[in-house]
């Protein structure tokens, strides 16, 4: 076994001349979990697609479990498990039949494929729905089955592309538990996410990317330190907002405005009091002031010095996906949300 489960050196990939990934390098230690954090369109999925042999990189060197992705893609495919953003399952077949299908495709004998399917159904708490067609599954069940399907044969390297997008908190917690267990079993895991909290809870190390570039790297704590750990959110009613903003700017250079909220990074909790006092001194009336953990928006604001303009729209796009997979009993046919989008 090599020291690194995954090595990415100077990866470049463009689509029709537009760079999607520009010179990205990182490594994932064998048996560790790396979180790849970034907004939609930042290049996360492209990196995963290059590493899983779906796309051919335009430049750079990629090694998965010591195998060269461009030189020996067959070797790579025999070592990886991939769970994509959208549950790639056969809607018509039952959960058990899906797992058996993938087992048989991986050349397991029929009996063994069945046995393995039953084991996985059990482990992923899908036993009750084993014989129902996948189209009747809820979003959380789909994601669990999708993950199970990629693990029909255990693999040393696991790719999880936004595995919890659109899941309700309980399903998310269950999936996190499963992912931790996978890592405890010794797998090298690359997980992409839009949620700071998710990477924070799961990852040994975090790589933050934006617009196809690595903009930060480190452990969760190191990153939070760079963001400032906490932000102060001040709620100001309209006639006072401009004045409040001006006042806060004197306090810190990075003032973000979200509707009626003004957000400032703070390094010490005591700064909350200082902010309130500053505003009070200037006679600016406020509705509320509170400390909270930074959101992904604010991480990007702190790391890139600009607000993440795409995050809002992407959040909505992700919610649209959530509508198809997140609600119990909803079927995720592409046609339905598309219809909704048109009207």
């Amino acid at each position: 076994m090599t020291q690194w489960g995954i090595e990415v050196e100077h990866l470049r990939k463009e689509f029709d001349g537009k760079p999607a990934v520009r010179d990205v390098s990182f490594t994932v230690g064998a048996g560790t979990l790396l979180g790849l954090l970034g907004p939609n369109g930042s290049g996360k999925t492209t990196i995963i697609n290059c590493l899983t042999t779906v796309l051919t990189p335009d430049g750079g060197r990629l090694l998965v479990d010591g195998c060269d992705v461009t030189g020996a893609p067959e070797q790579v495919r025999a070592r990886i498990a991939v769970t994509g953003q959208f549950a790639a399952l056969d809607e018509v077949l039952s959960g058990r039949d899906n797992l058996m299908l993938f087992g048989r495709l991986l050349r397991l004998p029929k009996r063994q494929a069945r046995q393995r399917a039953d084991e996985l159904l059990d482990r992923f708490a899908l036993g009750d729905a084993a014989d129902k067609p996948v189209k009747a599954y809820s979003g959380g069940m789909r994601r669990r089955l999708d993950l199970a399907a990629s693990l029909v044969v255990p693999r040393p390297v696991v790719f999880l592309d936004e595995p919890t997008t659109g899941l309700d908190p309980r399903s998310r917690e269950e999936l996190w538990q499963t992912i931790r267990q996978l890592r405890d079993d010794g797998a090298t895991i690359l997980l992409t996410s839009q949620y700071l909290e998710e990477v924070d809870r799961l990852a040994d190390r975090v790589v933050v990317i934006d617009a196809g570039r690595v903009i930060a790297e480190g452990t969760g704590d190191e990153l939070k330190g760079r963001v400032g750990g906490q932000v102060c959110e001040v709620t100001v009613p309209e006639p006072n907002r401009a004045a409040a903003r001006e006042a806060l700017r004197a306090f810190s250079g990075e003032v973000a405005e979200h509707g009626e909220h003004l957000v400032v990074p703070v390094s010490r909790p005591a700064q909350l009091v200082e902010i309130v006092r500053l505003l009070d001194d200037r006679g600016i009336e406020i509705d509320d002031a509170a400390l909270r953990k930074p959101t992904l928006d604010e991480v990007f604001f702190a790391l890139t010095g600009r607000a993440d303009e795409t995050a809002d729209g992407d959040e909505r796009a992700a919610d649209g996906d959530a509508g198809t997979t997140g609600r119990d009993g909803e079927r995720p046919a592409g046609a339905v949300p598309a219809e909704g989008a048109r009207s």
Binding site: G84, F102, L106
Partner: peptide, 14 residues
Amino acid sequence: RASGMYRRCLVMPV
């Protein structure tokens, strides 16, 4: 292709 089945086959040793 739409459901991702095709892509899943591509990332498997199929």
